[in-house]
Design a protein around this nucleic acid. Sequence first.
DNA 1: CTGAAAGCGCTAACAA
DNA 2: TTGTTAGCGCTTTCAG
Lengths: 358, 358
Amino acid sequence: MPPAQRHPTMADVAERAGVSTSTVSRTLRGLSTVSPEVRARVERAARELDFAVSRQAASLVTGKTGTVAVLVCTLNSWFMGSALSALGPLLRAAGLELNLYVIPDLAERASFFERLPARRNADALLVFSFDLTDEESARLDDLGMPVIYVSQHVDGRPSVYVDDVAGALNGTRHLLNLGHRRIAFIRATGASGFCFSSSERLLGYRQALTEAGLPLDDDLVVATPCADKGGTAKALGELLSLREPPTAVFAQQDEVAVTAIRALRTTRMDVPEQMSVLGFDDHPVADLFDLSTVAQSPWDIGREAGELVLKLIDDPSTDHGQHVILPSHVIPRATTAPLPGPRHQGPEQAGSPQVPAG
Amino acid sequence: MPPAQRHPTMADVAERAGVSTSTVSRTLRGLSTVSPEVRARVERAARELDFAVSRQAASLVTGKTGTVAVLVCTLNSWFMGSALSALGPLLRAAGLELNLYVIPDLAERASFFERLPARRNADALLVFSFDLTDEESARLDDLGMPVIYVSQHVDGRPSVYVDDVAGALNGTRHLLNLGHRRIAFIRATGASGFCFSSSERLLGYRQALTEAGLPLDDDLVVATPCADKGGTAKALGELLSLREPPTAVFAQQDEVAVTAIRALRTTRMDVPEQMSVLGFDDHPVADLFDLSTVAQSPWDIGREAGELVLKLIDDPSTDHGQHVILPSHVIPRATTAPLPGPRHQGPEQAGSPQVPAG
DNA sequence: CTGAAAGCGCTAACAA
DNA sequence: TTGTTAGCGCTTTCAG
């Protein structure tokens, strides 16, 4: 570990190869205007010196930093982990560095937006699931670089997200098709200031009920902090103490769904015999619990976001308002079952009359 | 979104404030040798122009990049997510950028080590859980920056990791203290080239058996790819078809333990009545499954790694061989129980004679 | 196809 | 306390 040996510079390589620094620069950037013989000499010299171009110096003159800034509120989630695991290699393959900003709380957030450290230090910014204020959005607009919103829709700005409305619509239809008529909806509330597509999903749920000719009963919509046992039990309690309790619950995150299943089992309610449970995400835990769910693919989101970034960096004049909307699909597993009772369960009977089976 | 407006430079700020760029530089870096009056003028000008220092240009002259490179094989894990969620804010608070390299497979890895993009572009490198070849280690040694190994012990290099030997020792003791004598060990094998502290844990397991005067039976040590249902079922099958099957299994990752529990339940074996199961990690699913486990804290690892990095950047002459070793502790939950049978279960009976209770 | 020269935006001596 | 000067290591005209 030689403590302070200086890195070789282009001048060192040039000297060793007996050429000018311009030629070294041209060679190393793969410009075709270098004779094969000289190119070979330069490459050998560079290898022998273990030379690496300083991005700092290059940036200074090209004006491009060669890095993409990524803003996340946490990494400690399956969603972020998967999305970034897809994004990272994609950017690297394009020769870009990935600069990560983890902004877990509002204090950090304030300081981030005040200083905007990414400014001047990245060619583009990826914002994951931030519920931005108008002022914050405005600051990002003035950043002087493309800003891509991921896992959230922002009007007039490039964004990549799954169609949550359609996902929730389809999930709810699945439950309707199983004969359920009293279907509860559990929203997962996250840390304040961050968005978790909850409202879009609620929209899809309502849409499904409406198209089935069912009334919207606000008592059936409850909320819980994500993955909070007590909160989920409480939410469940509200539902189970209704005059007319639901026969199915649609939880907006698999982790909440799983917590709900455990709470139900604790009180000896069988899932799905006495209560169907449907999740959203297809989180790994869904498979572990044989949980029926609406799957989305964070990998695809990460990949699409990366490709969009590349496009925008390459050609900033591209239409900035384009959106990439990704699909979701229902995965029926063991926690959703036909509503027991006199009704015959038939597919696509969504429009049938309301007969609460209880 | 003004498409291509140039960023203001220090010269712009200097002009507006009616001072030289040196003064602007001094002011913005908080050097005390600036009169309050001038300082105020400069700060106002900078704010009005929404000026941000270009790290690129600053780096060029200071020789420090102000960024820390982090090498991970995946982000899609609770461990990495938690560790980085702790590390990120810590680095940001110190004014450092976090440059992430996600290297999921051997091909990416080869290209990473060939080009070493972090060279010259970071002040320190954090390596998470990589099982490096000697050649790769040597390349990192020549990187010209401090390299910190995280979640792995590397001789003579600064590293941060939990004491896996002690963790496995204590976990095994817990099972011994419950009266178990036939204790299986399930290793979790990851992607090749990455290390998951499996061997240290095996060591601790063996140590516990030895100190209890029990023989080491290789038939009781099986392996499975992490979180692979089929693999885990197969490994379990090997154990259950032994002449003298185990009464407890110690799985080296909670995710494997949970998969094992599901497989056992599928075959109508009760946990813990007929088989105790102990995990390692205290992954969130452990709580969900009421899994007894040996807990480690990736948050602490991330934090300690961050603090060590800061120290080494600040003073590279610090002893490079220092290690930070973090503790683990057993969390008994619902999947470990005393061995049923004639024996009385007493605490700390580890040294008692070998009486396989079968 | 190659080299000389200029300069990217900043910091670090050194003077004043 | 402030300004002047000289680069940091690279890319980019522009000549040759």
